[in-house]
Design a protein around this nucleic acid. Structure first.
Length: 902
RNA sequence: GGACGAUUAGCUCAGUUGGUUAGAGCGUCUCGUUGACGUCGAGAAGGUCAGUGGUUCAAAUCCACUAUCGUCCACCA
């Protein structure tokens, strides 16, 4: 290709959209068009919620996934990144209801009705979806748009229904009457995982039901005591043992007298509080369990779904809010001398993660997934399946073991499973997959359920009731927990339940990434669904990342307004800079901080890469692709190519281990320091006299563009098109390292020596404030390094050192009135009669001698230690011996130089 | 109450299986316009690796305890 002129700085926003278009039109985002590729590598994109636009966290995830997928594509895999969005059930409905309220619709559900509200939500979701998809493109994410999925589209909805029926038929899904978490504000249940616990100061009240009741009790919620039906004590508690089994009738000033049975429960701690627990089966999950073991004690629901006291609480309390009822009941206790004491404590209460209110524990009929029941032919429970997949491997097959990165999250995950209770999957909100269950005759779901003795579970609406033949069927009004559908994600996006080619080719997926905050919600559910329904793990590796925080370590959130908009950053700095800044400094599982200076630094780097290319394009006679490593001429050439091979191998290893930050750092240092600051500057010097080796510049640049491409796809592709109008960089072959040559270390060491000499000279100049324009005379006594130093004389003389005459000898007399230094085993003298500040130079030398002596002492100490010499590996000892010798020489030289100065 | 993580230069972080005189970027100081880049270049200053004890020939790295910060889980009668 002929000469090109690049602009002085890289202007990202002028080229990015166009490049993305070219990629998209190339078809290479779809693995089907990667003809030579064979092995699949699939990533299922965690679908962003359609609750609004993407934030920095999404940008971060996009960067991770795109680096991974572009790397694998270049390595010749059938790389597939499937994009999608999540309808996010309760999150989206809550969001839209909030907005409607702001618009003056106080009670959206009642005022609009089901169909109209759903229409509003759908509108909102579609709008969010469109914005989200365009944002993903802005990030440069190379996903296959032809396979775009949505958790609420037809295919995914069918997957949900089929899954529900399968689980129901296997007896894993059941409808049960249980105490659940109820959000009064959202008028819906929430699963245990959807609660956010917050600390709250509360009073603990100690009281008695009545004057003749023998056991005092304590509670933080006196109003629920109106629904107590038992008192639990430890079976061996000597104080209360005699009452076990007795029934007391107490008058708590409510409608009816309460019948309180004293029961034994081993979980009651006799040493805690009063040693007895008032049992409120209707308003505590734990008490409900006691009730299930002692059904005869009865259950009284005193709080309703509206958060107010029910009729069962008695006419004096009915209709009061829980707080009002609490005050009233405490008053009553006081008046009747049943009140013993109160104490201030801090305890945590569960709030709804989406609606924000403190949830009530209420007994209700809901759909549950049984996680402990053995599944028929396998004789394993869902819990077993979830455990197995990350420990011994699915079905005990160690090739089907999910690797969790970093490892420590495996423990957290397993611990969570141990505590897992049956999963409540039904929600009373409207936005979501309606439960695929129908009831016949009439609209009263509970009544029909009882009459036909079974609900009709079906993937599609049944024509008639198989029991009674009625055609009057109503679908269950509840919707499914959003995680029920996202659990199917890795395979529903590939077409399941149909037996598609995609499913066969691309499942299990290769790699999944997610934040630790959704570990329980999502990781666990995907494993559950996949191992259960497909008899296969959903992915082979899962990379857990932390969350992004601001410079002060605070979470980004809308309320504090500290969350930058990714699109704004892209506009200002470019997508490549954003991507680089997001992965800089991150390690698996740990939180990371994000701030503008990071993006600025990344933008500067992108510009550096651009300018390296600009220089090269201006310097070479022809811009062409160099496939094979070019012939080397100088030491610098050898050094650069050797280092390049080392970097390639290190980067590949890091990327294989998903060490994104480390990989980019390796490349960053090589590109900026080794290539730009050293090699290109050397090239400028050497190309004057020797004919500079253009091919090495081109070859190295091409390698770097490929290596950088996964990280900064836009700028690298933009530069690359000057090399090849036909081949896209995104499908260029990944430059793997060649085998190491034997003399590599010598090459590296030789050039390091030259670097050290040059740096030492620059240092002397700078430290002694020698004017940059002042030419100097330099003498180097190189002893055994004479050959290599002599060969690099031109370089040393001209490389930012401004040397007039350079004398290189094996050894010789110490010249008078000189600046001196020791570098790379050589003595260095700078003849500057009359110009230098002798005192400053002396103190500099003294300081250096002190350092050298200290080091020498530590080396001598080490080697004098018999145990070290005898026990440490031979190689380590040899290394220390070498160090000692060279350090001695160095110290001698430094001392000579100091004497010489006097 | 249980578990996990963090603690390294002024700031943000690396430090891969124990063997470096502990590194980088940003910031700071001093210079500088040399054929790409001032979104640049050269040089420098700055750390007893939170503390204490232990294992080891050798510890930022392994172990124990302590402190501070953070996160999760459980409990909350």
């Amino acid at each position: 290709m002929s000469k090109v002129e690049l602009s002085k700085t890289y202007e990202a926003n002028k080229v990015e959209d166009n490049i993305y278009k070219i990629w998209e039109e190339s078809g290479f985002f779809a693995p089907d068009n990667l003809k030579k590729a064979k092995t699949p590598f699939t990533i299922a994109m965690p679908p962003p919620n359609v609750t609004g636009i993407l934030h920095l966290g999404h940008a971060f995830e996009n960067a991770l996934m795109d680096i991974a997928i572009r790397y694998q594509r270049m390595k010749g895999k059938k790389a597939l990144l499937i994009p999608g969005t999540d309808h996010a059930a309760v999150a989206t409905q809550a969001k839209v209801e909030d907005e409607l309220k702001k618009q003056g619709i106080q009670n959206p559900r009642q005022e609009l009705g089901r169909e109209k509200l759903l229409e509003k939500i759908r509108e909102y979701a579609e709008n969010s979806k469109a914005i989200i998809l365009s944002q993903i493109k802005k990030m440069g994410t190379s996903c296959d748009w032809s396979r775009l999925a949505y958790t609420f589209d037809e295919t995914r909805s069918q997957a949900v229904n089929v899954m529900f029926k399968k689980m129901f038929d296997d007896g894993l899904i059941y409808r049960g009457y249980r105490v659940i978490n109820w959000s009064v504000k959202g008028q819906s249940t929430a699963s245990d995982d959807e609660l956010v616990y917050i600390e709250q100061p509360t009073k603990v009240y100690t009281f008695k039901y009545s004057s003749d009741f023998p056991i005092p009790l304590a509670t933080t919620r006196p109003e629920t005591k109106l629904g107590d039906t038992a008192v639990a004590v430890h079976p061996d508690d000597e104080r209360y043992k005699k009452y076990i089994g007795q029934k007391f009738i107490v008058d708590v000033g409510a409608k009816n007298l309460l019948a309180i049975t004293v029961i034994a429960d081993k979980n009651v701690d006799p040493n805690y509080g009063t040693g007895a627990v008032g049992v409120t089966p209707a308003h505590s999950p734990i008490d409900f369990e006691m009730y299930q073991n002692n059904k005869n004690i009865g259950l009284i629901q005193v709080i309703g779904t509206d958060g107010k006291m029910t009729e069962a609480a008695g006419p004096a309390y009915q209709g009061l809010t829980a707080l009002e009822a609490r005050e009233k009941f405490v008053d009553w206790l006081k008046k009747n001398n049943l009140y013993l004491k109160e104490e201030e404590i801090v305890h945590s209460v569960g709030t709804s993660d989406r609606f924000g209110d403190v949830v009530e524990a209420l007994p209700m009929e809901q759909w549950f997934i049984d996680v402990n029941k053995p599944i028929k032919p396998r004789n394993k429970s869902l819990k077993d399946l979830m455990r197995e997949a990350v420990t011994v491997g699915h079905n005990g097959d160690k090739n089907k073991k999910i690797i969790i990165i970093p490892e420590r999250f495996q423990k957290i995950y397993l611990h969570w499973i141990d505590n897992l209770r049956d999963w409540n999957i039904s929600r009373q909100i409207w936005w979501g997959h309606q439960i695929p269950v129908w009831y016949c005759r009439g609209k009263d779901r509970d009544k029909c359920f009882k009459e036909c003795h079974q609900p009709i579970v079906s993937e599609e609406k049944p024509k008639k009731c198989p029991v009674c033949g009625s055609r009057d069927l109503v679908q269950d009004e509840d919707t499914l927990d959003t995680w029920f559908s996202s659990g199917t994600w890795t395979f529903s996006i590939l077409g399941w339940p149909k037996k598609t080619k995609d499913l066969k080719n691309y499942h299990p997926t290769a790699w999944m990434q997610m934040g630790y905050e959704i570990l329980f919600f999502w990781l666990a559910r995907m494993i559950l669904m996949s191992t259960y329904a497909l008899d296969e793990i959903p992915f082979r590796e899962v990379y857990i990342h932390g969350i992004l925080r601001d410079k002060n370590g605070r979470k980004f959130s809308k309320s504090t307004g500290n969350g930058p908009d990714p699109l704004e950053i892209i506009k200002q700095y470019g997508a490549d800079a954003l991507r680089l800044s997001l992965i800089k400094g991150i390690t698996a599982g740990n939180d990371a901080r994000f701030y503008e200076e990071k993006v600025e630094a990344a933008r500067n780097f992108v510009n550096k890469l651009w300018n390296i290319s600009r220089f090269i394009f201006n310097s070479v006679s022809e811009i062409k692709i160099i496939d094979k490593a070019p012939k080397v001429k100088t030491l610098a050439d050898k050094w650069l190519l050797t280092k390049l091979e080392n970097i390639k191998s290190a980067v590949e290893t890091s990327l294989d281990n998903y060490e994104f930050s480390y990989a980019s750092e390796l490349l960053y240092n090589f590109t900026w320091s080794d290539f730009a600051d050293w090699y290109i500057e050397v090239y400028k010097v050497e190309s004057k006299k020797l004919k500079g080796n253009e091919e090495i510049l081109l070859y190295t640049l091409q390698n770097l563009l490929k290596l950088w491409h996964p990280f900064c796809p836009f700028v690298t592709e933009e530069i690359w098109h000057h090399f090849s109008a036909n081949e896209l960089l995104m499908v260029a072959k990944w430059p793997s390292a060649k085998k190491k040559e034997a003399n590599n270390n010598k090459i590296l060491a030789d050039f390091e020596l030259v670097k050290n000499l040059i740096t030492a000279i620059r240092n002397l100049r700078s430290e002694n404030k020698i004017e940059p324009k002042k030419k100097i005379k330099v003498i180097i006594y190189a002893s055994d390094k004479i050959k290599i130093v002599k060969s690099q004389a031109e370089l040393i003389k001209n490389f930012w050192t401004n040397i007039e005459t350079l004398e290189i000898k094996k050894s010789g007399q110490k010249p008078a009135n000189c600046l001196s230094a020791v570098a790379g085993g050589c003595e260095l003298y700078l003849d500057l009669t009359g110009i230098i500040d002798l005192e400053a130079e002396k103190s500099r030398l003294i300081k250096e001698i002190e350092g050298a002596e200290k080091y020498l002492k530590s080396l001598e100490g080490k080697l004098a230690n018999q145990e070290f010499v005898s026990q440490a590996p031979q190689a380590v000892v040899e290394k220390e011996k070498e160090k000692l010798v060279s350090q001695k020489v160095k110290l001698d030289k430094l001392k000579n130089q100091l004497n010489n100065l006097k």
